[in-house]
Write a protein that binds this DNA or RNA. Sequence first.
DNA 1: TTCGGTGCCGGAATCGTTTGCGCAAATAAA
DNA 2: TTTATTTGCGCAAACGATTCCGGCACCGAA
Lengths: 348, 348
Amino acid sequence: MKFESATIKDIAKALNLSTSTVSRALRGSYEISSETKKQVLEYAEKINYRPNPIALSLKERRTRAIGVVVSEIANNFFSQAINGIESIAYNRGYHVIITQSHESHEREKVNVEHMAARGVDGLLISLSSESVDIAHLRELHEKGMPIVFFDRVSDEIETHTVTANNYWGSYHATEHLIYQEFKRIAHITASPHLSITRERLEGYKDALAKHNIPFREDLIRYCPHGGMKVPEVEEAIGSLMKAKNKPDAFFGGGDRLTMTCFGILKRMKLKKEPGFIGFTNTAVGDLFSPAITVIKQPAFEIGQSATEFLIQMIESKRPITEFQHKVLETELVIRESSKKEAVAKREA
Amino acid sequence: MKFESATIKDIAKALNLSTSTVSRALRGSYEISSETKKQVLEYAEKINYRPNPIALSLKERRTRAIGVVVSEIANNFFSQAINGIESIAYNRGYHVIITQSHESHEREKVNVEHMAARGVDGLLISLSSESVDIAHLRELHEKGMPIVFFDRVSDEIETHTVTANNYWGSYHATEHLIYQEFKRIAHITASPHLSITRERLEGYKDALAKHNIPFREDLIRYCPHGGMKVPEVEEAIGSLMKAKNKPDAFFGGGDRLTMTCFGILKRMKLKKEPGFIGFTNTAVGDLFSPAITVIKQPAFEIGQSATEFLIQMIESKRPITEFQHKVLETELVIRESSKKEAVAKREA
DNA sequence: TTCGGTGCCGGAATCGTTTGCGCAAATAAA
DNA sequence: TTTATTTGCGCAAACGATTCCGGCACCGAA
């Protein structure tokens, strides 16, 4: 089974011209008589000629494609970010190749290497939770591959980054819970070496400090798989609820994590329902019971900005030395799950 | 900014050999002395040589990549199906290129053409809701491009298809609502020329007929954008609720549609809460209020089967003439939203 | 010594496209 | 008429890899 397409040679043969003439005619070179041009153009149109992008890539050493690595597309944040990426890329004439790391460092590496070999012009990446060692990226970066980090960034590579303001998002969320008079706020978060984990943890800590609530390490739980493995989260919550002083509120540190967490807590049917808040970009937070308070990230815009930076790098003649670190604000959407009165009422 | 890689020429030059010898040595040809082979292999390893896939594609006229077109990745069904596709593809040594049509026929066409030109070895496609005319696919198919339809299929092209048993899924869902004593079941569904729309409508009709409930066209609403445009669904529901005889239950015909519908109904805060059921693969249906009854499709398996068929077609020596139409069973997950008693209780 | 065979390797074509260079004919200038 | 310039086009190399074809050297056999 193969699939043949018309080539420049077919045109040349049919019109008794050389391939070079045809090529030049197609791109409207001034060296070709307008009559020949017309002939070629018409015939090309007739047989629906399309230049072979593979041959072009080989020749020009560029593909007009950008590669994307996210952990999961089945994650509201990432699917929205991808839509942002596409919106810019298509307008600028780039195609987007999406891959998933499934939070696996190995998978991330394989994907990145394949896309690099395949000749993408640049890479947009949000690190997997397993990625401590990013030698595979550094190597590529040193060879000149444009790379932009978004969401989960690394400072081991000097380049543009685009993130949400995780610190303030987390700070405000935590402060909101404090205002609602929750005293023992547990923070269920992802792998501690992710930038987002650290930033969100800092915001949480600082909000506590601001309100003179001592930070307690035993209220923090790290789930390296970021909510993908339910037992991991169950274990985290279980251990928290077994303690003498149970938390009275939970704060989820990522999209999947927030969902998983919320589900587990709900299924536990606790007598004393805890307050809940989480980072997630779900569109249906108000359909939940209780309607869930969320920190929403400007995912679409993050995708857009990252893509703009990347294309700018790709198309720049000289190496870039000044890098930007764009930070976009989050939005706290307050609903029922974080309100003390609401919680109290549901318990009554 | 460019990105250079070692080539076979570099090896040849360094070792004072010809490129042909190096090429042969790398693939272990018997015509090359074991000594030369060793040299070449070692040097290749040392400089971390990787064959250029673009050059290979040009030569071999295959890319070991398969293209996927879905309407939205931010759709639980599709993201799960894509995971199924990847699980098979990667094991068989194929890469997966994901594109979204956003329910636009034009976008679908552009994506398909680009992937074809780019040289994917085959195509996995679930049609956009706008795609009535599929000339772009037929043309490709006639030129020999292997294509497998999944989920939203077309009978205009003779090929393998993989779908959920939409008819029975819909039949059982409808029957379930009937058993729960709902009398006027509205069906909010997608574009009428999608195969899934037709199949689900048939199941709905036949279940009504089986229970001697007359089918009423005025209980059906088509939303061509499949729930992507909220106003469209609001209008549909609004018009149904304005009628003298309001529906007492709603049945959503697709993933996005079900979510959108459910949200709108909830926000309407109706005195008399209608029964609800819908096709969706959401993982969090039990977190909703009320917990939502769903028809779940075996999305992952659909993705897997479709990919197996496709790779089989790609690797087949002779044209395939016998096509399979695989149908996988759906699962009805009954929760609160469809239970008459529950609805009554919530109303009390 | 010559012939056939084998082992090992290089030359060159090929995939589809672009492009530097050169060449012939036509036109313009001398 | 001769020389210079322009116009219009073809040849061939290049991108990176594979592969057909052929060649050289060395061996044993006749």
